[in-house]
């Protein structure tokens, strides 16, 4: 699920940036330091929407760098148990398959794939439905439900299912 959150971050700038473009540099640095990171408390920080306020800089003794406390709004992505996500299959193996929804990796085990799907390893490993019409392979798009999440300090991992109504393959790999 996506949220807009207001978070803050200490940013340190070396003295060579003290000048007319200081605020711009601060924002650039904020983007590069927080976007794409993951915190256990909030989830993946997808993008910074705006900077709300910047505190007065405090010069650090010794280095001459200034540290600023920046409050910013950002979009975070955090998966929840029971949530339905669209994801792209990244690996198929004998145990199940892995899929990615943006930065999040999700594993779907063969227990949570409908029984009529069978693994074939003839060429590329893939799960194929009994009638041969639906194929889960590398690059397939699937809609899945998150059944379990593990949230560590700096990483989130999910286990998902496609063994429910309206879940399953929604698109074949792009040519």
């Amino acid at each position: 699920m996506f949220f807009v959150l207001e978070l803050d971050k200490e940013i340190e700038l070396p003295p060579r940036f003290f000048g007319p473009r200081l605020r711009e540099t601060l924002e650039q640095k904020l983007h590069s330091e927080v976007e794409g990171t993951c915190s256990g408390a909030y989830g993946f920080i997808i993008c910074v929407v705006s900077t709300e306020s910047v505190s007065k800089g405090i010069i650090r003794e010794g280095t001459g760098s200034a540290s600023f406390n920046v409050k910013y709004k950002c979009v975070v992505f955090r998966p929840f148990r029971g949530e339905v996500l669209d994801a792209v299959v990244t690996q198929v193996n004998k145990v199940g398959f892995f899929a990615e929804a943006g930065p999040l990796q999700i594993f779907v085990s063969s227990h949570l794939i409908p029984e009529d799907f069978e693994l074939t390893t003839a060429d590329e490993p893939s799960f194929v439905s009994a009638d041969g019409e639906v194929r889960i392979q590398l690059g397939s798009e699937v809609r899945l439900r998150v059944v379990g999440t593990r949230i560590d300090a700096s990483d989130i991992f999910c286990v998902g299912t496609i063994k429910e109504d309206y879940l399953g393959v929604i698109g074949d790999p792009q040519a």
Partner: peptide, 20 residues
């Protein structure tokens, strides 16, 4: 749909413009 990797997700979020 695009192959969504790190930046793909960022793009999806930008599509939402102002996420609810």
């Amino acid at each position: 749909p695009e192959p969504r990797e790190q930046n793909g997700a960022a793009q999806q979020a930008t599509n939402l413009e102002r996420p609810e």
